[in-house]
Simulated scan of single mutants.
Amino acid sequence: MIVRERIEKAAESLTIGERKLAAAILSDYPFSGLSPIHELARHSEVSAPSISRFVTKIGLEGYQEFQRELISELKQGLRSPIELHAPGREVKGGYLGDFIAKSTTQMAIAADAITEEQFNQICGLLTDPKRRIYVLGGRISDTIAKHLTFHLQFIRKDVYHLPGNTESWPDYLLRMRQGDILYLVDFRRYEPMLEQLARRAAQQRHARVVLMTDKWISPIAKHAREVMPVPIDSGTLWDTYSAALAVTEAIVTHIAEHHWDQTRSRIEAWEALRLTPMDDPR
């Protein structure tokens, strides 16, 4: 269990001071917990002994172990396929069946990690016609971002996928209005440029950042209003995006089915304007 999960699990038993400490830690997670204990005490306005008691309450032996766990999480977030590869990995039955079984487990974990309330909240944000939607992912995770964009464009207008060329991003930032949605997908090894984009969108354009990430949590989270952690660890040299794709398809399907009249009209108009090789050039 990562430190964030420990804190969330203990939430109901925390005192007022401990809740203030938890909020300070989670506001800049995991970096806030890597500072010396007296600095964290000053920042969170609680005493050092209170921090020690808090760390014990979440199941760790002391502040040193607390920091070792956070450092370990940071390393996990930076692991490459070479580091993830485990020679001699046990495969139960055939490889395909074993891999699909692991992916199925990851989807079940995703369903538990994202509450129905949060799911509905995000669907509502992506449906709101007053909000423009801007979507982007990382070097590999942009596959998920493009999948979301493709389906949302069939459902509603004002959905834009940002290009990979960072030189064009200012144009999109200038288009953003207060309350617009910047939906980012960022899995380990996190993209520093996406974090910069999120910061500027939130601070300078007052956009609302929605983040899909993994359990180690992208640095983008500090700028996000909604964070969806999905499992990606497959136990192989490649992380799996099966759960991320399942959540993405659940989002677009939920929106389409609950706004079917709008979706149908949009698809009919889209289909009427499609170009085909048989179109008369005149």
Rank of each mutant, 00 (worst) to 15 (best):
D158W: 11
F187P: 02
L197T: 13
L184D: 05
K157F: 11
T127R: 15
D186Y: 02
G124I: 05
R208V: 07
S141H: 07
K215V: 10
R188E: 06
L148S: 09
R156A: 00
R199G: 02
T166Q: 00
R205T: 09
Q178G: 06
L148Y: 11
D186A: 07
A201H: 10
D158N: 14
N165Y: 05
H147M: 12
L125S: 12
R189I: 08
I181L: 12
H206W: 13
Y183E: 03
P163V: 02
L125H: 12
D158Y: 10
D171R: 12
T127W: 15
E191R: 15
V135C: 06
F187A: 06
R189C: 05
R199L: 09
P163E: 00
E195Q: 04
P129S: 03
Y190C: 00
R188Y: 02
I217N: 00
R139S: 14
G164P: 08
G137C: 03
D158F: 10
V209F: 05
R208S: 07
P192T: 00
M193H: 10
R177T: 11
W216H: 14
I133H: 11
K215A: 09
H161N: 13
D171G: 06
I217Y: 02
Y190L: 00
T213A: 00
R200S: 05
V135M: 01
K146Y: 10
D128Q: 13
